[in-house]
């Protein structure tokens, strides 16, 4: 059926995207000043000869495209390479860290959409009232607060003073509560604004006026006719948002000392551990493609018009 072809096409487009990203990233890492071996041998007691020897051993003296093809040929065989710093398999390093980040990402996304959609609906339906004003201002404030600072404040309030939750580290699900909130709050404000705008727009549409005119009850008009259409962009955003949260996770995982992939990415970039950075970015790219496709499918299901238009043009 149309939907299936559409999905397959979407996924196929993802492949060159993934390649493109890895090539660009490989080049950026290569262009970065310094090199991993020099960073590795940070002490003063190192002779330049030792540095050269190690560079050769790791193949870093080869031209960048040779390094890339070498890496690629291994990736195709499912081998992400070996970390220059810890000399361990990148697949292993990432698989140890990925679960924490995935859980954090998904919980915080769900949380931010729950808060955001609810607040958006309230402000849209109570447009122009005091509630609208208060919630909207709260939204602007939470959008403007840096997640880092907000995380520190949460840590102080719930970890340091009240001791309800752990300050940092991973001790179980309770350790993810504060990081998830710090990640969710700023993005929930964005969701709120989107929901509100869409809802307001939809409520001004002709068919809503018709629905009122037909004498349908309020509940039916708002939640069946209006909400369903207003939610389409919000649902799309939901799927597009998830991979982006890894960026936020870098900061929040460092702040809360969580052993996630974001922190691994940060440390690996600092140490210029090429293989690990490449591996993580590959995973982020794949996640992005997958979630984008998922988003498209959901839209196609929710809004048959999209399927026809895009299905045709693709």
């Amino acid at each position: 059926m149309g939907l299936l072809t559409y999905v397959v096409k979407k996924l196929l487009i993802g492949v060159p995207v993934i390649f493109g990203v890895t090539i660009i990233l490989f080049y950026i890492m290569y262009m970065l000043p310094g090199d991993p071996i020099k960073l590795l041998l940070a002490g003063e007691r190192v002779t330049p000869a030792k540095i050269e020897e190690l560079r050769r051993a790791w193949g870093l003296d080869q031209p960048v495209y040779i390094q890339y093809f070498y890496w690629l040929s291994h990736v195709i065989r499912g081998d992400l390479g070996v970390s220059i710093v810890t000399k361990e398999s990148v697949t292993l390093l990432i698989s140890q860290r990925l679960p924490y980040t995935l859980i954090l990402m998904l919980t915080s996304t769900l949380l931010s959409y729950a808060i955001g959609v609810l607040a958006g609906l309230i402000t849209a339906l109570k447009r122009g009232t005091l509630i609208d004003g208060v919630v909207s201002v709260a939204g602007v404030v939470s959008y403007s607060i840096p997640g880092f600072w907000f995380g520190l404040m949460l840590m102080l309030a719930f970890g340091y003073y009240s001791k309800l939750l752990p300050i940092s580290g991973y001790e179980g699900p309770q350790s993810l509560v504060l990081p998830a909130i710090s990640l969710a709050l700023p993005s929930s404000a964005y969701v709120m604004r989107l929901t509100r705008a869409e809802m307001v727009e939809v409520l001004n549409e002709d068919y809503i006026r018709t629905a009122w005119a037909k004498g349908l009850n309020k509940k039916r008009v708002l939640f069946v006719h209006a909400l369903r259409n207003a939610m389409i962009p919000v649902v799309v955003m939901f799927f597009l948002d998830i991979p982006w949260l890894i960026g936020g996770a870098v900061v929040i995982e460092t702040l809360f000392a969580l052993p996630g992939m974001g922190r691994l990415l940060y440390v690996s970039i600092i140490r210029q551990d090429y293989a690990v950075v490449q591996g993580i970015v590959l995973i982020i790219t794949v996640l992005t493609v997958v979630f984008n496709t998922l988003g498209d499918i959901v839209v196609a299901v929710l809004d048959p018009r999209v399927r026809i238009e895009r299905g045709g043009s693709l």
């Binding site: 998904l106 769900l110 752990p166 991973y170 179980g172 998922l294 959901v298």
Partner: peptide
Amino acid sequence: LVVTVLVLVVVIALVATYYMLMPTPTQTPT
């Protein structure tokens, strides 16, 4: 149905990832 299934999948994936992949914190860091 599709939307419900998708939502369910996300939730199940969440819970499943959690219990399958997360190491049980036998050694609490504190």
